[in-house]
């Protein structure tokens, strides 16, 4: 049962969301909630401190793409999903072959 601060949305019968669909819906709603009701304003203090220190600061919502293989991992961000994956591809490809000394 949903608590008083949980919103339940009934999906149409025909909808069969994948795990990725669910993750993206959750992320979207989390972003909306965070924009409207942030859990704290601590980030503002950090931003102010950085500005005082001479930094130009901006924050934005981004896509994150991750890849893992054995002990290796790559992470890329992008304003669009394809931008994030394009960068991820480069990061993964750049040392695809370890090379010799």
């Amino acid at each position: 049962m949903a608590g008083s601060n949980v919103i339940e949305v009934t999906l149409p019968d025909a909808a069969t969301p994948t795990r990725e669909d669910i993750e993206q819906l959750e992320a979207t709603f989390r972003a909306i909630v965070d924009l409207r009701f942030p859990d704290s304003r601590d980030w503002q203090k950090v931003e102010e401190a950085l500005v005082i220190d001479g930094w130009t600061v901006r924050s934005q919502l981004m896509w994150v793409a991750e890849a893992h293989k054995g002990w290796e991992s790559e992470l890329a961000t992008g304003r669009t999903k394809s931008e994030a994956f394009k960068q991820l591809q480069q990061l993964a490809k750049i040392d695809d072959v370890a090379g010799v000394p």
Binding site: I94, D95, G99
Partner: peptide, 13 residues
Amino acid sequence: ADRLVHASIVDGM
């Protein structure tokens, strides 16, 4: 970068 550059270049990049 050329895809076969040396590992140290990859690290530097």
